[in-house]
Simulated scan of single mutants.
Amino acid sequence: MTDLLYSDPDLVQFYDIENQGRTDLNYCIGLAKNGGSVLDLGCGTGQLAAELAAGHSVTGVDPASAMLDVARHRAGGHKVDWVEADARTVRLGRRFDLVLLTGHAFQVFLTGEDQSAVLRTIAEHLVPGGRFIFDTRNPAMKEWLEWTPQRSERMVAHPGLGTVKAWNDVEHDPATSVVTYSTFYEIPGGRQVLGAESKIAFPAKDDLAAMLDEAGLLVEQWLGDWQGEAYVDTSPEIIPIGRLR
């Protein structure tokens, strides 16, 4: 599951720039307002984990060392217990009041077997009465149609490199619901083009519901976006919130 977008420091430097103003961070901070311990699976560069560490005991787990290098050096990063591990197999030997898996990290797990393994990890790390939340894009909305070079081209303001042209390209496999997309950054002055190919899955809500039940997790609420709206068939997101059954 090595993906240069998350493992190559030259590409990781663009992650936070491209993910500013994430509404999932605000929602999860509100969800954790009653305190307690938090496990952030797929914590990436640690934006959410570091913010939560101001008032919680937080553990951040990610398989990409380049992402964790950024996480450790961000403001508040010293308060988080960072663990380099795979969400499918990690077992920390403790349970948490809240388990998070945001930033569409669930979608990097391409098969039902891998997705079920992640859900079992969530179940293994929840205290009785604890809550979980994660997000995945709604396949019915076909967001990947916007990831063509023409529709995705954008200018990224990098603090050291200046203005960088970025774009994506995409292929969708309807048989597996797996989308393969490429991300490119053209360094100013024609010096080089950085690129990476990534694969993500778009599981359907009914399939998620069955896997959650099998993992021993009870969904109390299905959200359709990070503003807190209830899920409907045309929602952009599928966001289950729940607890152990």
Rank of each mutant, 00 (worst) to 15 (best):
residue 3 D to C: 06
residue 5 L to K: 15
residue 5 L to R: 15
residue 5 L to M: 11
residue 12 V to H: 02
residue 22 R to F: 01
residue 22 R to L: 14
residue 24 D to K: 09
residue 25 L to P: 00
residue 25 L to H: 14
residue 31 L to E: 02
residue 31 L to R: 15
residue 33 K to T: 06
residue 33 K to F: 03
residue 35 G to W: 13
residue 35 G to Q: 10
residue 37 S to M: 12
residue 37 S to W: 15
residue 39 L to D: 02
residue 40 D to T: 08
residue 41 L to W: 09
residue 41 L to Y: 07
residue 42 G to Q: 11
residue 48 L to Q: 12
residue 49 A to V: 10
residue 49 A to C: 09
residue 53 A to D: 09
residue 54 A to K: 15
residue 58 V to I: 09
residue 58 V to A: 05
residue 59 T to L: 06
residue 59 T to D: 01
residue 61 V to H: 05
residue 63 P to E: 02
residue 64 A to E: 10
residue 64 A to T: 14
residue 65 S to T: 11
residue 69 D to A: 14
residue 71 A to R: 13
residue 74 R to A: 08
residue 75 A to F: 12
residue 75 A to W: 12
residue 77 G to Y: 10
residue 79 K to C: 03
residue 83 V to K: 13
residue 87 A to D: 01
residue 90 V to E: 01
residue 92 L to N: 02
residue 95 R to F: 00
residue 96 F to R: 07
residue 97 D to N: 14
residue 98 L to M: 10
residue 101 L to I: 08
residue 103 G to E: 03
residue 106 F to H: 06
residue 113 E to W: 10
residue 115 Q to D: 00
residue 117 A to P: 01
residue 119 L to Q: 06
residue 120 R to N: 04
residue 123 A to Q: 09
residue 124 E to L: 14
residue 126 L to P: 06
residue 127 V to Q: 15
residue 135 D to M: 14
residue 136 T to N: 03
residue 140 A to E: 13
residue 145 L to T: 15
residue 151 R to E: 04
residue 152 S to Y: 05
residue 154 R to G: 00
residue 154 R to N: 00
residue 156 V to G: 01
residue 156 V to H: 02
residue 159 P to Q: 04
residue 159 P to R: 03
residue 165 K to P: 00
residue 168 N to K: 15
residue 170 V to R: 10
residue 175 A to F: 08
residue 175 A to P: 05
residue 176 T to K: 11
residue 178 V to S: 04
residue 180 T to L: 00
residue 184 F to T: 04
residue 185 Y to L: 04
residue 187 I to M: 00
residue 188 P to T: 03
residue 190 G to Y: 09
residue 192 Q to R: 15
residue 193 V to N: 00
residue 198 S to A: 08
residue 200 I to D: 00
residue 203 P to A: 04
residue 207 D to Y: 08
residue 211 M to F: 03
residue 211 M to K: 14
residue 216 G to R: 12
residue 220 E to H: 13
residue 221 Q to A: 14
residue 224 G to I: 05
residue 226 W to V: 12
residue 227 Q to N: 14
residue 229 E to H: 15
residue 230 A to V: 14
residue 236 P to V: 04
residue 237 E to A: 13
residue 240 P to N: 04
residue 241 I to R: 14
residue 244 L to K: 13
